[in-house]
């Protein structure tokens, strides 16, 4: 299958996006932002639809809408957006907007499917380069801010007490997340970004003992999911995103079972 250019592009882009999703997903889980990630994918959907409507590249619309969304959420405060009502209003409004832009665009049928479910096999060499540059920038910033982000994500009260700029960290992370979502939407689609950003990190949480290992395992699982998805999709013609989510979900339930077994057979530690 590697003699096809589109498969080479798919594997390169898929691997890079998976590494990014796996790494960023650990902080998404630690900060309790999984549903905000889901909201970003819906915002991204309307952004991509808008781009198609005005004749732009879908990635440009995705980036524009998700980054503006990140800044708005950061300005209003993440706590406000964690409210159930706020999230459901956001999801509905942006999904509605996306549908409106697609309805206004003639012959938008194939775009709808691409944005909602992803189209990893339709990625051009130019798209691969854009993904490589964006991911490299994103991972560099994540590495540079790793210590502060880890502190604020795993011990928010302690981070505030130590004088960290927690508001800045929160907005900066939302911006990184919005760029990550915009990239991942192209691979797994708006509906399943959530899966690649959260399931590998949730699995890693059950089988690792440190934050660093959680990032490594989460990234490895995301990459394996994309590789399995692409290979099986090539062989069976079923959608890539189905195989990715099925693989990630299988790993998650196996890890959950292993973790439960480990807890059952480990001697109980008495709490003081």
């Amino acid at each position: 299958m590697f003699h096809y250019d589109f498969m080479q592009h798919a594997f390169i882009a898929g691997t890079i996006v998976a590494i990014m999703c796996g790494a960023i997903g650990v902080f998404v889980m630690a900060r309790g932002l999984s549903f905000i990630t889901h909201s970003f994918s819906h915002i991204g959907f309307s952004g991509a639809s808008f781009a198609i409507y005005v004749g732009w590249d879908p990635l440009e619309g995705l980036l524009l809408f998700t980054t503006v969304g990140a800044l708005s959420i950061g300005r209003m405060g993440v706590k406000f957006f964690r409210r159930e009502a706020s999230i459901s209003v956001m999801l509905s409004v942006f999904l509605g907007l996306g549908i409106l832009f697609l309805a206004l665009t003639p012959q938008s049928g194939s775009f709808t499917s691409t944005i909602l479910f992803g189209s990893v096999v339709g990625i051009s060499l130019k798209d691969v380069w854009v993904i490589v540059i964006l991911t490299a920038a994103l991972l560099c910033l994540l590495t540079l801010g790793y210590k502060m982000l880890k502190f604020d994500s795993f011990d928010p009260v302690g981070a505030e007490a130590a004088g960290l700029p927690i508001r800045f960290i929160s907005v900066a992370f939302l911006l990184l997340l919005s760029v990550g979502v915009a990239e991942a939407v192209q691979i797994v689609g708006a509906l399943l970004v959530f899966a690649l950003m959260t399931i590998p990190a949730s699995t890693a949480r059950h089988i690792t003992q440190s934050v660093f290992m959680m990032i490594v395992v989460s990234a490895v699982l995301a990459v394996l999911g994309v590789w399995v998805g692409l290979t099986l999709s090539y062989l069976t013609s079923a959608p890539v995103s189905f195989y990715i989510t099925a693989f990630e979900a299988l790993c998650y339930f196996l890890a959950l079972g292993w973790s439960a077994l480990k807890a059952k057979y480990q001697p109980m530690k008495m709490a003081a």
């Binding site: 795993f154 302690g158 981070a159 934050v211």
Partner: peptide
């Protein structure tokens, strides 16, 4: 979060004053 796999050693290291060296 009790479910998060952060070890005591790692948790204490968060308090170190440097910010940008990972």
């Amino acid at each position: 979060d009790e479910e998060m796999p952060i070890q005591t050693w790692d948790f204490i290291s968060l308090g170190l004053p440097h910010r940008l060296r990972p």
